[in-house]
Design a protein around this nucleic acid. Structure first.
Lengths: 343, 343
DNA sequence: CTGAAAGCGCTTACAG
DNA sequence: CTGAAAGCGCTTACAG
């Protein structure tokens, strides 16, 4: 781009200037700096490297890709990049990819199966070497097909079937949330559970509900919703309209929790006093909200990094085992004891 | 990936199966469906297209890219994708790119000049045909150099120098904000202005301050800060520590405004009653916050779309002129009349 | 230690 | 209407 076609620096242009053969130049430039001896005499190697550096030679990926069959491209499918959680995971993926000389291409599926298939096909047409899915659905039909076709991929954030994945331990995270609210004396609680097709929401909810059941307490109410603020607000409206409303709400996502905070306020309730609300993921916003939000912290960037590393192991024919990273509770002002002293 | 190398469908494999020459197959598959007549007999063309469809032929971009010199790749540099504003702009860019058969590659610069240069170099090494910068600095040294080297690019969200850009009219947006607060009777106001190197913050601030000056009012206080929640909170702390604190704060970014809301609460102030706070960009969160945030709405996705379209015009040698999209005020509960009746 | 050849998949004048 | 050739930039056995 910065160079017109005619001026592009190629192995040939370097070879010609040095009176060498392009294969020699290729060997030197591809060999690692230390074992250059294998490729050419020390002197020749030095001259080649110096000129390549001087001219700013960058190998044309079309040429090498065509020849080697390796694109050094990785495809990343997410529900939407404007979901902060996925954006942070993607940053982790891209960071780790860059360190390994890989480039990522991303696409949004909007959690729609048709879109997911079309976008995946586009990524494959680009000859990505492998894929990372951040939008897995518990109904894993598409992934099963892809795996059967020999597709190489790993999942991140959400698990599905037996496909290799890097997730947080959402079951544990749900239990941590339940322990926290129970510790504050909340026995009448509700869960804003997200979309039923996502393992994240399902597992967090199962962990949460499971602990209440284990303690012989009444089962928390569970209501589903989109993973965003508007969805959380609507779900909370339903819960708060009930005269017998819960004293605490666990939303499986910080943004849904923020929506729930808004609904609480509309009902004249002060969050952290009249009602406890907690979220999940501990996005950077949570700690900085006017009423700091209790949440469950998940290593999003690290999940992304690990997913990329797992994919490369898979591509090199190695064995991979799914990873579950531990979540950590982050208690803040939005949750407090169930019955204030004043009552 | 889904196919082992041996099984890859190529022009050759199609040609062989049909007893045709690969050039014939190429001509047919590249010609538009209607003028296939140019490429082969109707019958031949049909047989080729049918088989290609059946085998799921996807042209190898390494082959075509090498031959044509076109990668159909566009590079997008942003400060960080985990900034919702940039994520939404990027979604617009990617959407428009997909419609034109282009693929985007993105990278974070973190507003750091060194990183910006390194990442741009990587994108160029990937042979992107053009670049979109969402991280332009008012000190446009890097962009000037790139343009001098013949680099093809457009800017989005932030302008710099005379480089072609798609931005919102931030000067006007700043004036809209000032008119709104003035209309509510606020004469003692402050601006949380973001980073000084970004035209967005600078122009919004200039528009805002300009209107107050035009009306002969005392100049608003201006304090700089990062574009995130923590930055907004710190900046607001400084403003509110002053016993002579402003009655309204204009933050040039919604996330900074949310941070300011938190600081206000820490000072025992109720937002929308004791103090007015407004943001900018009207991110999806703004309307759903516990105290809905007054903001200035900017067509983020559309900016992205237009930037991509402008870039393609540039690449095809057309003339391009910078675009300024109009912002719209979105008034909500976080801003109210300066002196409540109660005082 | 270096060169020469082959070929990855594609497109595009050119010929017939 | 279709074929044949050339060549984009690269890598990799093979030869000497």
């Amino acid at each position: 781009m910065a160079e017109s076609k005619a001026r592009q620096v190629t192995l040939r242009s370097i070879a010609d200037q040095l009176g060498l053969h392009v294969s020699t130049v290729s060997r030197v430039l591809n060999g690692r700096a230390d074992d250059g001896a294998r490729a050419a005499s020390g002197d020749t190697a030095t001259r080649i490297r110096r000129l390549a550096q001087e001219l700013g030679y960058q190998p044309d990926p079309h040429g090498s890709g065509l020849r080697t069959g390796r694109s050094k491209l990785v495809g990343v499918l997410v529900p939407r990049l404007s979901d902060l959680v996925l954006a942070m995971i993607y940053e982790g993926i891209d960071e780790a990819a860059g360190e390994l000389g890989l480039t990522t291409i991303t696409a949004n599926s909007r959690d729609d199966d048709k879109t997911r298939r079309v976008r995946t096909k586009m990524l494959l047409a680009r000859r990505v070497e492998g894929l990372i899915f951040g939008d897995a659905s518990l109904d894993s039909g598409f992934l099963d097909e892809l795996a059967a076709d020999g597709g190489k991929f790993v999942l991140v954030n959400r698990r599905a079937g037996e496909h290799p994945s890097v997730t947080a331990d959402d079951l544990l995270g749900g239990r941590l949330a339940a322990e926290h609210l129970l510790g504050l004396g909340h026995t009448d609680v509700a869960v804003i559970a997200g979309e039923p097709y996502a393992s994240t929401g399902a597992d967090r909810t199962a962990g949460f509900v499971g602990l209440y059941r284990d303690r012989g307490l009444p089962a928390p109410r569970v209501v589903h919703s989109p993973f965003d603020t508007a969805g959380g607000r609507l779900a909370a409206e339903r819960l708060l309209a009930d005269p017998n409303r819960p004293t605490a709400i666990f939303a499986v996502n910080d943004f849904a929790a923020i929506g729930a905070m808004g609904a609480a306020r509309d009902h004249g309730l002060t969050v952290g006093t009249d009602i406890s609300i907690m979220g999940y993921n501990d996005t950077p916003l949570a700690a900085e909200l006017p009423v700091p939000l209790t949440s469950v912290s998940v290593p999003m960037r690290d999940m992304g990094r690990r997913a990329l590393q797992m994919l490369t192991r898979l591509l090199f024919g190695g064995e991979v085992r799914s990873e579950r990273l531990p979540p950590v509770l982050a208690a803040r002002a939005s949750t407090a004891r169930s019955r204030p002293a004043a009552l």
